[in-house]
Design a protein around this nucleic acid. Structure first.
Length: 855
DNA sequence: GCAAGGTC
């Protein structure tokens, strides 16, 4: 039987190109089970025999790192634990079913050839792929290969195929280490600061106060510029300005060679000296041919810079549009670091496609007829060719921003093969006494690429009148001009991208994400000219880090971390050693930060208002009976200033008091939540919403204990009875506890299990002499445990003899009393074991589920 | 709900 080889690329587009090259255009194509990846097949000689090849791809990382389930609970986990708690790899995008897709295609394969991108992330994905196919094919040292390629060209790809190597485990491990460090450090700091400041201030206007080794230094750049502006002290200075008249009577303003002077007396002295003369003498006229060079081929970072500064589009938005242009076939792959066209890149063909364009066809035809200029030598990062147009588009087929981006990409491409713009730079020097002045001008020789990139062309007034050596001209005016030094302006997005690139913060793909993050988290706002103006939250955060531990916000922190990771990649240190070392350092930094958070808090105090000062009284607290305040600013929440407790609420809706009713479990006044005017509303108890009373009930799952007519927890309904073991306690029937039904008291620690295997249990309308509500139980006929095969029984769990055999009453051990005098225990009741199913899901689903138990 | 990195 013919042997089979599975080949895997990093993304579908690359799999298609590789298959096309390797099969000489003879591959067949089918969709994979996840509908995202295609499989290209053909036969080809390999290792001396004909082999059936399958070329497919992943979509970036197959797996991603996360904490194991219970450590994702912000309430129960101390963020310091995140530095050592267990982690696990989860499928990066569950709906792509990537591991099972790969496993399926690997079945019956004899070879695995990895065509992941040739960088550390790609190396890491190699091992994710190997892990995914391990069960389906026998993986040995001899049947797994790694293709090393530096450009998607026939020459390079075929050479890679003929010279396969092995995946680099050290590089992959360095990525594993990076993932773990980023996860643990980022989440620990984020959770701590979010909790700390959200519990104190009501007008932060941010639901998350995040920290990240990339996003925080990014914010740092913006705040640094803000500080420079704030601390800037304008200084006056004086400029000696002389206007002369040419022989043709034209006025020309000369530039002073000393440029400016910061002392008025001295400047005045120079002026007096100059004033003694009526004429200026031209001492030299020099002319030099200079060039404005054509641009380098376009890569992602440059595209983002231009989109922001030239087109007013944010980098995130620009990349979304670029991606759409790419998938529609208008441009080449838009994520690349490379600024150098591959040797066999058909520049002429791409250019010819554009020659009939009504927008730049004329310029293209000119370039074609005069012959293309060899593009400037750029940098080949070995990833993808530079960004170029792939087919013509007209203004009508692309909408606004898509057209503007396509227009730029195409003009940029044409410019890279156009001539440089050349001009004559003329400098005339003048002497007035001992002072020297000059006047420079530019005369266009050849507009070159600026015809197509017209916004870079010369303005008309840059030419200089034809002075000649030794010429004497009249001085028309000499005066001092008083000026002031100006502060820098806020950082433009384009400048920020340059800074990030320079300091190695983020990658071409993640730079827009980080910038987007700090905007969305309300740390910076985008001002006019796409300048990034930090908000008071952003400023206070950065100043706080600088006060406690400046390294946390330093751009060098990321590169220091990368240096450690490189030790792993180069095999100079084990992953374990590096992780242990770096995690220990950051854990100490974290603990120090927590201990000294007061320093940051002092800054918050000045800019923000404490929760207690904000909001309006809304509903009563179940613990102290005082009114709690509703804080409307994001995230909406309730705050009891007497108990100093904050209760989160469902977001993006309207919260009102609900009929002045109280929750039977904890005496908190009930609220009604509705989504806008026409949206559905449901009642909720603020305490139960934060501390679910039943096991399996997700925090924040909506109506927990309330008096909504259809809510089973209501006293008016069927879920709650009085407890007669204690004074004033309420027995709650846990609707999710069947078939071992459970009633538990919210005041004493009684738990009553009843009617194992009962089909349905409900609290009846009737009341027993002892004061408890009657309980009604239903069995299915075949499973009844009642005398005479009855299927229904109503009675009291405390006194009815009929119930004696069916009730099991005990006291919970170590269960904190929900209404203990010293304040309510934080833990809810009766969440004995984990599990899934009932009690989960959206509020409305849960209502339906609960209702089903009691109707 | 959290990071950063791939990519769709």
């Amino acid at each position: 039987m013919m042997k089979r080889a599975l080949m895997v690329a990093e993304k579908p587009s690359l799999a298609a190109s590789l298959a096309n090259i390797l099969s000489n255009g003879r591959s067949t194509n089918r969709k994979g089970i996840n509908n995202a990846c295609s499989i290209h097949e053909w036969n080809m000689q390999f290792k001396g025999e004909s082999v059936h090849f399958l070329m497919t791809s992943v979509c970036g990382h197959v797996m991603s790192l996360d904490f194991v389930g219970k450590f994702n609970n912000w309430d129960r986990v101390d963020p310091a634990e995140l530095f050592h708690c267990p982690t696990e790899k989860k499928e990066a995008v569950a709906k792509l079913k990537m591991p099972s897709f790969l496993a399926k295609e690997a079945k019956g394969c004899d070879y695995l050839v990895l065509w992941l991108d040739c960088d550390k992330e790609g190396e890491n994905i190699c091992f994710e792929v190997i892990d995914a196919v391990r069960e389906s094919m026998r993986i040995t040292d001899h049947n797994v290969f790694r293709a090393h390629f530096s450009a998607i060209t026939e020459k390079d790809i075929k050479a890679a195929m003929n010279n396969l190597g092995k995946p680099n485990e050290n590089e992959a491990k360095s990525v594993d280490a990076r993932q773990e460090l980023d996860l643990r450090i980022g989440c620990a700091f984020t959770r701590f600061q979010t909790r700390f400041f959200q519990g104190k201030y009501g007008d932060l206007d941010a639901s998350l106060i995040s920290y990240g080794p990339c996003q925080t230094p990014t914010l740092g750049f913006c705040v640094q510029r803000h500080d420079e502006i704030q601390t800037f002290k304008p200084e006056p200075y004086w400029v000696l300005q002389v206007t002369v008249q040419t022989s043709e009577g034209k006025e020309v303003v000369l530039d002073w060679e000393r440029v400016r002077c910061f002392e008025k007396e001295i400047a005045t002295m120079f002026l007096m000296q100059v004033k003694e003369f009526k004429e200026a003498k031209v001492t030299s006229v020099s002319m030099k041919e200079k060039a404005k060079v054509r641009p380098l081929a376009l890569n992602t970072v440059e595209l983002m810079r231009v989109a922001s500064s030239g087109l007013g589009m944010g980098p995130h938005h620009a990349m979304q549009i670029a991606e759409r242009l790419y998938t529609q076939g208008y441009i080449s792959y838009p994520r690349t670091e490379t600024t150098h066209y591959p040797e066999n890149f058909d520049l002429l063909e791409v250019l010819r496609q554009q020659q009939h364009s009504s927008d730049w066809g004329e310029e293209v035809r000119e370039v074609l007829s005069s012959g293309i200029n060899r593009p400037k030598k750029g940098h080949d990062a070995g990833d993808h060719p530079p960004i170029t147009p792939m087919r013509t588009a007209s203004r009508s087929e692309l909408d606004g921003d898509a057209w503007r981006l396509y227009d730029y990409i195409t003009r940029h491409f044409i410019a890279t093969v156009s001539r440089d713009c050349t001009y004559l730079s003329t400098t005339a020097k003048f002497e007035i006494g001992k002072e020297v002045f000059k006047c420079t001008g530019k005369t266009l020789l050849d507009p070159g690429y600026t015809i197509v990139m017209h916004w870079q062309s010369f303005s008309k007034n840059e030419t200089v009148p034809p002075f000649s050596d030794g010429e004497i001209v009249n001085i028309q005016e000499a005066k001092l001009q008083e000026c002031q030094t100006c502060p820098p302006d806020y950082l433009t997005e384009s400048e920020l991208i340059t800074l990030m690139e320079k300091h190695g913060i983020g990658t071409d793909a993640s730079i827009p994400v980080h910038i987007n993050n700090i905007c969305q988290r309300n740390y910076v706002a985008v001002g006019s000219g796409r300048r990034l103006v930090p908000t008071s939250l952003g400023i206070v955060l950065v100043h706080g880090y600088q006060k406690i531990d400046p390294e946390l916000v330093l751009p060098t922190m990321r590169s220091a971390l990368e240096e450690q990771l490189n030790l792993i990649a180069h095999g100079q240190a084990s992953m374990h050693a590096v992780l242990q070392h770096s995690l220990e350092i950051f854990k100490q930094k974290f603990l120090y930060f927590v201990k000294n958070i007061e320093g940051m808090d002092q800054l918050f105090e000045v800019s923000f208002s404490p929760l207690a000062m904000l909001g309006k009284a809304l509903s009563r607290c179940g613990k102290c009976r005082r009114y709690m305040k509703y804080v409307q600013a994001k995230p909406a929440r309730l705050h009891c200033s007497h108990c100093d407790e904050t209760y989160s609420l469902p977001q993006n809706g309207v919260v009102r008091i609900y009929k002045e009713l109280k929750c039977p479990l904890d005496d908190f006044e009930l609220l009604s939540w509705s989504a806008g005017n026409k949206g559905k509303s449901y009642p909720l108890c603020p305490y139960c919403y934060n501390h679910p009373p039943f096991r399996d009930m997700k925090k924040g799952s909506g109506c927990n204990a309330c008096t909504h007519p259809s809510c089973p927890h209501s006293l008016n309904s069927n879920g709650v009875s009085s407890c007669v073991e204690c004074d004033g306690g309420v027995l709650v029937l846990d609707p999710a506890s069947g078939p071992k039904w459970k009633l538990s008291c919210n005041r004493c620690d009684v738990i009553i299990h009843i009617f194992d295997d009962a089909h349905k249990v409900a609290v009846d309308d009737g009341t027993c002499e002892c004061g408890a509500q009657l309980i009604c139980v239903n069995y299915k006929e075949e499973r009844t445990k009642l005398p005479n095969e009855a299927t229904e029984l109503t009675g009291c769990v405390f006194c009815s003899p009929d119930f004696a055999n069916l009730v099991e009453k005990h006291r919970a051990i170590n269960r904190p009393n929900r209404m203990a005098p010293g304040g309510r225990a934080a833990r809810g009741r009766g969440r004995g074991r984990g599990g899934k199913g009932r009690g989960k899901g959206k509020p409305k689903d849960k209502m339906a589920q609960l209702a089903a138990y009691f109707v």
